[in-house]
Amino acid sequence: MADISWEEPYCGAGNNCYRIGVDGDGNSYIAVAGQEDHPLTDSRAALSALIRDIKAGKADHLLEG
């Protein structure tokens, strides 16, 4: 596996903790905290787009109960 530099876990309400990481080749990673050996991976550009879209509210419909 790539040499990933992981950020500290981001924990929302309850037990939902995620980690974001990057490697030296420009790839980004998202994993459930404690399961970093099974991350989702994509480019830094894709991670940036995901974060911008979430901040813009494009995923708010996923939070509706």
Rank of each mutant, 00 (worst) to 15 (best):
M1N: 15
M1A: 15
M1V: 14
A2P: 15
A2G: 08
A2L: 13
A2E: 15
D3P: 03
D3Y: 12
D3K: 15
I4L: 10
I4D: 08
S5F: 06
S5G: 13
W6Q: 03
W6S: 04
W6V: 06
W6I: 08
W6R: 05
E7A: 13
E8D: 07
E8C: 00
E8S: 06
E8G: 02
P9W: 00
P9D: 05
P9Q: 01
Y10P: 00
Y10W: 06
Y10V: 09
Y10F: 12
Y10M: 07
C11Y: 01
C11E: 01
C11D: 00
C11G: 00
G12R: 01
G12H: 02
A13D: 11
A13K: 07
G14P: 04
N15Q: 11
N15C: 04
N15F: 09
N15K: 05
N15P: 01
N16R: 14
C17D: 00
C17K: 02
Y18L: 15
Y18F: 15
Y18A: 12
I20F: 13
I20W: 05
I20R: 14
G21S: 05
V22N: 03
V22W: 04
V22P: 00
D23F: 04
D23L: 04
D23M: 04
G24Q: 08
G24R: 10
D25T: 08
N27H: 03
S28Q: 00
Y29R: 02
I30N: 01
I30A: 08
I30G: 01
I30Q: 04
I30V: 13
A31V: 01
V32N: 01
V32P: 00
A33L: 01
A33Y: 11
G34Q: 06
G34N: 03
G34W: 02
Q35T: 06
Q35D: 09
Q35K: 13
Q35A: 11
Q35I: 02
E36V: 09
E36D: 09
D37H: 14
D37Q: 11
D37K: 11
D37P: 02
D37F: 08
P39A: 12
P39V: 07
P39H: 03
L40H: 11
L40I: 12
L40T: 12
L40C: 10
L40F: 11
T41F: 09
D42F: 10
S43V: 10
S43E: 01
R44C: 15
R44Y: 06
A45N: 09
A46L: 08
L47G: 09
L47R: 13
L47I: 09
S48Y: 07
S48F: 04
S48N: 12
S48D: 13
S48H: 10
A49M: 08
L50A: 12
L50F: 14
L50D: 03
I51V: 15
I51D: 02
I51A: 12
I51N: 05
R52N: 12
R52Q: 13
I54N: 04
I54W: 02
I54M: 11
K55P: 00
K55H: 12
K55Y: 09
K55Q: 14
K55I: 05
A56Q: 09
G57Y: 03
G57D: 07
K58L: 07
K58G: 03
A59E: 03
A59I: 06
D60C: 07
H61P: 03
H61C: 10
H61K: 12
L62A: 11
L62T: 12
L62Q: 12
L62S: 08
L63F: 15
L63C: 12
E64I: 14
E64A: 14
